[in-house]
Design a protein around this nucleic acid. Structure first.
Lengths: 342, 342
DNA sequence: TTGTACGCGTTATCAA
DNA sequence: TTGATAACGCGTACAA
């Protein structure tokens, strides 16, 4: 039942425990005679020896684990991110410990602390909000951290973000190419860095084309229902023929209201989403949306973190991952809307 | 930067390291003079000492962590389960390491092995499938395991399941009370123990009332689209006025098809779901469904696991958690359907 | 009631 | 190239 140890292997191979350690460690394997290595290997095989990571950690002060902090795992963008992180970590011998903060600051503090107790070697931290004390504390204590999905001011942290501005830019271009000039925007919550970045990009993009960027409403949460209300409010204002939603869920909310009001998509109103969630291609009409490569974001973040663990004093890197526009059936050439303006 | 150790505390308190250890460990605290304890405590406070769990584990062979194996975290039932587990674990000083197998047997094997390397003290294992080699291996190796969401034959394992049969029974009773006698069932996949259990319960419940339980179709996956096809197939058969779906998602699939075919819910067809997912109360019409207390399932499972860790040789327990029916707007009294029978 | 001393399984620094 | 030995930080018999 109890696992064999280094000493057991040494005994069976007829060598000293220290030699076994060297033979097994890739770093020091070349210090030991090849034929001894094979002898050790055979003993390892025979006994089914597995190095004890706890004893190793005690000695090396490294646990070969990293914390992965996620606000809400039920949001469909996170599982691919986590998977990207873990797949990038594995070849380096690291593995990830996922915690779900439920966007609760107290819970977050507790869970992060428990991971620090466990001596994780670093963190990939997904934070959507502007204020996030946990990150600052970590960084202040010199713990390697890579932040994802958050645009922030501090240049002392490594970070990976999607190129939100470019995504909005592509959406506007697509709509303008279809002949739309009156375009509205349903922006994500004020506390969300992504929501804010997309709103800024919308205004800038419209202004750059000499178009009116004032048809924008900011919601309080990413849920569909919020966006129903927002779209209803926009419909009370000046006419528009297309709407860019700050996320796919907000776009789905538009669908809901449009169905209730018998506004046809895309004939009466074109809709563009953001994220390319799994549902986007299944729903009818299939949603034109900005596709964010979440798996790649996770993978890049993991690599950045590994770099940071290896060289804590190297300057932090900030990476912006390119996005792309997936054109489906929710956008069509602009026609003069049938409903009357106010 | 480097954390203070037991020796630092001892030095500051003017006692021997061994004494500090005893003073801090609740098990042995009564062996030490109260005033010494307070002196130690003060030193701990002053230095911000935190026991090193790695060193402790090396000595005690316990890591105070348990593995939580989840097939697919994006399914909305799992986050509450995980949370229930973790909340029950915390007071006992344990914490959970979540892994997401994506229902991939190779990935599962790898991740479970990595947790065993890390010497987790046990597993809460959520498996929906009938065949699950990882569980058998774990159990065979004497690792404490509690299985959830899976009904299986082996009596050697502790398990927590929802009372699926009772849920279906309540659904049938509800519909019969509304005057329905022709009831169909869209059953979950054949490989799913829950799907099978609910199907069996449906047949048994209908038979017990002298009703026809043959209007049942089994789908291949839990996705909405599957259930659209299944309902379409059922509609080609004998007339029925209500359908019990094997899950909420399958019920949503029914909604989709009914919308396409202009079948009104609940007027033309009553629909009952299973799970009470968050969407169930938001969708229109709000879904009548069997509510499964996932948080409670997680919490019970955690307690069972802690028992098992403390007394590995005690007989395993199998717990069935009661469910309840939440009546909303998708079910109504039966009326003769307007469409013609085949 | 407290101090002593050893071991958990590994890595790292010496010597040989 | 390998062996001896000392940590890493903690828990725990045993002795005092």
């Amino acid at each position: 039942m109890s696992m064999p140890t280094l000493r057991d292997v040494a005994e069976r191979a007829g060598v000293h425990p220290g030699t076994v350690s060297r033979a097994l460690n890739p770093q020091t394997r070349d210090l030991v005679r090849p034929e001894t290595v094979t002898r050790v290997r055979r003993a390892v095989q025979a006994l089914g020896y597995q190095p004890n990571p706890i004893a190793r950690s005690l000695k090396t002060h490294r646990t070969m684990t990293v914390g992965i902090v996620i606000p809400d795992l039920t949001m469909p963008l996170f599982p691919p991110i986590v998977r990207g992180i873990e797949d990038a970590l594995r070849p380096a011998g690291y593995s990830g410990l996922v915690i779900n903060t439920d966007d609760d600051i107290e819970r977050e503090a507790h869970l992060v602390a428990s991971l620090r107790d466990r001596q994780v070697d670093g963190f990939v931290f997904s934070a959507s909000r502007f204020d996030c004390p946990a990150i600052d504390r970590l960084a202040g204590d010199g713990v390697p951290v890579v932040v994802i999905n958050r645009r922030l001011d501090s240049p002392h942290l490594s970070a990976v973000t999607s190129d939100d501005a470019d995504g909005i830019e592509m959406a506007i271009t697509h709509l303008v190419d279809l002949g739309h000039t009156e375009i509205a925007h349903i922006a994500g919550p004020r506390w969300s860095t992504a929501g804010q970045a997309r709103l800024d990009a919308f205004r800038a993009g419209m202004a750059a084309r000499g178009l009116d960027g004032s048809r924008a409403v900011q919601v309080d949460s990413w849920f569909e229902q919020q966006s129903e209300h927002a779209l209803a409010a926009l419909l009370d204002g000046p006419v528009f023929t297309a709407v860019i939603a700050g996320s796919d869920r907000l776009a789905f909310g538009c669908y809901n209201l449009m169905q209730k009001r018998r506004i046809a998509c895309p004939r009466d109103l074109s809709v563009v989403g953001f994220s390319n969630a799994p549902l986007a291609e299944k729903i009818r009409p299939a949603l034109t949306t900005v596709s964010v490569p979440n798996y790649a974001i996770g993978a890049r973040a993991a690599h950045l973190l590994l770099d940071r663990i290896r060289e804590p004093d190297a300057p932090p890197k900030r990476i912006r991952i390119p996005v792309s526009l997936v054109v489906r059936d929710s956008t069509a050439p602009a026609i003069v809307p049938a409903r009357t303006a106010v």
